[in-house]
Structures are given as structure tokens and as C-alpha cells.
């Protein structure tokens, strides 16, 4: 769909604003001095992050097998799981409809008849 008009501004002003932002950030980035990165790059030579996550999952980090500390990933996995769960519930709730005094879900009519007695399908 090509409805890119916002009605009042057209596309010129947003394009100009975005272009300006890109220019400013590009100039900032290019003129910034990041220093020497050699140390950081060596930390990952020949190591596999995924293997280390596996070691951390089974609590093998203490035994000297793991080379990269990856407990942060485990925390991330758990929190992400909770957050996605909450999001799913929220989405389902927002999607519910109220019709004729009773709550009807979006998929109500597709799988059930909403508790109506009899009637044609």
C-alpha cells in the first residue's frame, strides 16, 4: 500500500528531517575517536559463544571448561520467557470483544458456537 501521505506534510518534510538526522549522526560517528580495539577482538578468537552458553546451562562454568562468561544469557532467556508470556496474555486480552453483553473472543465463532443452544452452523 502506498499510502505514505500523512495528510498535512507530504513526504518532503519527514524525508528532510530524516536526512538531516542521518547526516548529523554520520558526522558524529565518523569524527569520533574510538581508540584501539585490538584487545577486545582477541577475546573471541576461536571461541564459540554457543558452546559456552551450553556449559553455563549445565553449570559447568566452575570446572574450567567455559572460557567466556555467559551467565548473562541465561538471565536473559528466563526474563525473555516471562516477558513473552505476559505479552501473549496481554494480546489475547486486548483482542477480546464485548458483544451483546457477553465477552466474545476473536476466534469464538471459528471453533465454538459461544455456548448458544441449537441453531444452524
Amino acid at each position: 500500500m502506498s499510502d505514505t501521505n500523512t495528510g498535512r506534510l507530504g513526504r518532503l518534510v519527514p524525508a528532510a528531517a530524516v536526512g538531516l538526522l542521518f547526516a548529523v549522526m554520520a558526522v558524529t560517528v565518523l569524527s569520533a575517536d574510538f581508540g584501539d580495539f585490538s584487545e577486545g577482538l582477541e577475546a573471541f578468537e576461536g571461541e564459540s559463544v554457543v558452546h559456552n552458553i551450553g556449559y553455563a546451562l549445565f553449570n559447568l562454568g566452575e570446572h574450567g571448561v567455559a572460557t567466556i562468561p555467559s551467565e548473562g544469557f541465561l538471565a536473559a532467556f528466563l526474563i525473555v520467557a516471562v516477558a513473552l508470556d505476559v505479552a501473549l496474555d496481554g494480546a489475547v486480552y486486548l483482542a477480546k470483544r464485548e458483544e451483546d453483553g457477553s465477552i466474545v473472543s476473536a476466534v469464538g465463532q471459528a471453533f465454538t458456537d459461544g455456548g448458544r443452544d441449537g441453531g444452524e452452523r
Binding site: L41, E42, V49, P69, A91, Y93
Partner: peptide, 27 residues
């Protein structure tokens, strides 16, 4: 470039939370 996995962890967070946010957004 800094050899610190925190960045990757954070990126993982962001991806998951983006998904959650989209779910709510579509609702």
C-alpha cells in the same frame, strides 16, 4: 569490539522484548 558479551545479551533482550511489544501493539 570490546570483547564483552553484555552487548549480545542486551541485543537478545531487545529482540525478545520487541516481539512482546509487537504482540501488545497488534492488540
Amino acid at each position: 569490539y570490546y570483547g564483552d558479551l553484555t552487548g549480545q545479551v542486551f541485543a537478545l533482550f531487545v529482540i525478545a522484548l520487541a516481539a512482546a511489544e509487537v504482540a501488545i501493539g497488534i492488540g
